[in-house]
């Protein structure tokens, strides 16, 4: 699968460098404007949809069929998109962590429970976005799956910011700390990501090309 991953990384670098530059810019802005959650969520959510963008390019150049002439199983052809998503989301999240950590050092506010809780919810959002979108794209293709794709993005952006602002309230009502709430969110999104991979493999194995 190394070859497939290399291909996708080459494509990400070539096709998505502008997107990556925007993401880096938004991450930097999030350092300055800490009140606006959009700048913190946006880079990770956008990063999580890069595998969908690469799938679109694969379809356009007929790699979806041609890729199957090489010694890869259909499971591997699907798995590489999840692996790519995981690598990109984690890399972006670590960048965000580094920036937030640097910011908290400067402002001497680091290490608080809410700080980590927030970052965990951001990571959960990234995994959730990939997990919800990839099976739709594998099933319907990028052309037909576009509408569902947009709906998922809007729901995830609205849901994450909403969940973040409600987390304190929910935690209070359930008598658990926001850290527990965030860990539960991460666990749930990880399970969804895993189930999404299983479903996508099944879809791809049954797909006729």
């Amino acid at each position: 699968m190394k070859g497939l991953l290399l291909k996708d990384l080459y494509m990400t670098r070539k096709y998505c460098w502008m997107m990556l530059a925007f993401i880096a810019l938004f991450t930097a802005v999030s350092f300055v404007d800490k009140e606006n959650l959009f700048f913190q969520f946006y880079p990770v959510v956008i990063t999580s949809i890069l595998p969908v963008t690469i799938l679109g390019y694969d379809e356009k150049c007929h790699w979806d069929v041609y890729g199957q002439v090489f010694p890869y199983s259909k499971k591997q052809l699907v798995s590489v998109k999840y692996l790519l998503g995981l690598i990109l989301v984690c890399a972006m999240w670590l960048l965000l962590v580094a920036i937030q950590f640097f910011g908290s050092m400067v402002n001497q506010t680091g290490g608080q429970g809410d700080w980590w809780s927030f970052l965990l919810v951001v990571l959960s959002t990234g995994l959730l976005a990939s997990g919800l979108m990839l099976p739709i794209i594998f099933k319907f293709g990028t052309e037909k799956g576009r509408l569902a794709f947009m709906v998922v993005i809007v729901l995830i952006c609205a849901g994450s910011t909403g969940a973040m602002s409600l987390s304190s309230d929910i935690s209070f009502r359930l008598s658990v700390s926001t850290s527990v709430f965030s860990l539960a969110a991460l666990a749930a999104s990880s399970i969804i990501f895993f189930l999404s991979w299983v479903v996508s493999v099944k879809i791809y194995e049954r797909k006729e090309f």
Partner: peptide, 25 residues
């Protein structure tokens, strides 16, 4: 195998295909 549409990604070069295939076969 060569299909009627050689479906390599448009943005890659022959050298990059070589590296991809080195990690494939």
């Amino acid at each position: 195998v060569v299909l009627d549409e050689v479906g390599f990604p448009d943005c890659l070069t022959a050298i990059q295909f070589g590296k991809i295939m080195e990690n494939t076969y």
